[in-house]
Amino acid sequence: MPQSSAARSERRAERSLGALSSLVLVLITAMCLFVLLKAWPSFSHNGPMWFGWGGNVDDQLAAIFNSPANPAKWDYTIRTWPILYATALLTIVSVAIGIVVSTLAAVFIVEFAPPSVKRVVSPVVRLLAAVPSVIYGLIGILVLVPFVGNHLIGDGRKNSVTFVVQLSGASLGVAVVILTLMITPIMIAIIADALRAVPNGWKEGALALGANRWRVMWTVVVRSARPAIIAAAVIAAARAIGEGIMLAMVSGSVGFAPNPLDGITFVFEPLRPYAATIVDNAEGLSVKPFGQTIYAMAAVLLFASLMLSLGGTLAKRPLRKYGVRL
């Protein structure tokens, strides 16, 4: 019976493909379970205060690392507020700047740039997106950080906060600048795609009513591409939250919460987000309570990126009707 055997092999093909495809779901489930289980002791010992403030988080990490060998005496106490604050601050500020910059850049690429300039800018955006984060970090730590430390931060400024934190140049400001540069290209790509997908009739209609070219873009084209801007912001936020290597290099790697009340000094204060904390402490993962604490940070990142993926999917939904595929 050749036909039925063909049908059977057809079905087998479909099933194997389906099973292979479903692996990714198994993997995500496993990831959530494994990380959460490993992280649980740290969360359960601290409760909601895990995210709270009190004490010096770097001292707390050191204490956890140096816990006695006896599991009954393991130290878990940690208050990660400065790290949480650093993560949120870096992400929000760089995404906010990124939205403005990438929207303007996308409008430029889609509308204002003459064809010859367009031919240059599009590969430039792809190039900036392709540069590995460690190279951004390297340039940051070897060029920008010394420059800021030697030329932009005067001794007076250094002394003004010397009892709280050392200002070396590795700082919020440098971190934000490089992080924005890293997340902007992907935002530009998404927004430019959406701008191109806006029906031409709307653009012509607005031009025919006597609106100038900027107003046409702003009032009609960018406006109808708002879902794309939100989607781009969400995707960029996921990138920014998870960026560990570059930030471990240029953020100063101090568990410190920069204080906006310090005025300009705020920009020069060091900090360290969750991802960079994990990178910095990768060596200690096998030390029991310490490893669990670090895994708790990974769990927070995992949860945040899951939420952002979900948000991104929802934000992208209205884009489908213009035929934009992301």
């Binding site: 029906p199 009739g201 709307w202 012509e204 209609g205 607005a206 031009l207 025919a208 009513l209 006597g210 009609v220």
Partner: peptide, 14 residues
């Protein structure tokens, strides 16, 4: 274009 206005073949309200 504000003095010479246009209506298109396909209705294109914003």
């Amino acid at each position: 274009r504000r003095r010479v206005s246009m209506v298109f073949q396909q209705p294109n309200p914003f």
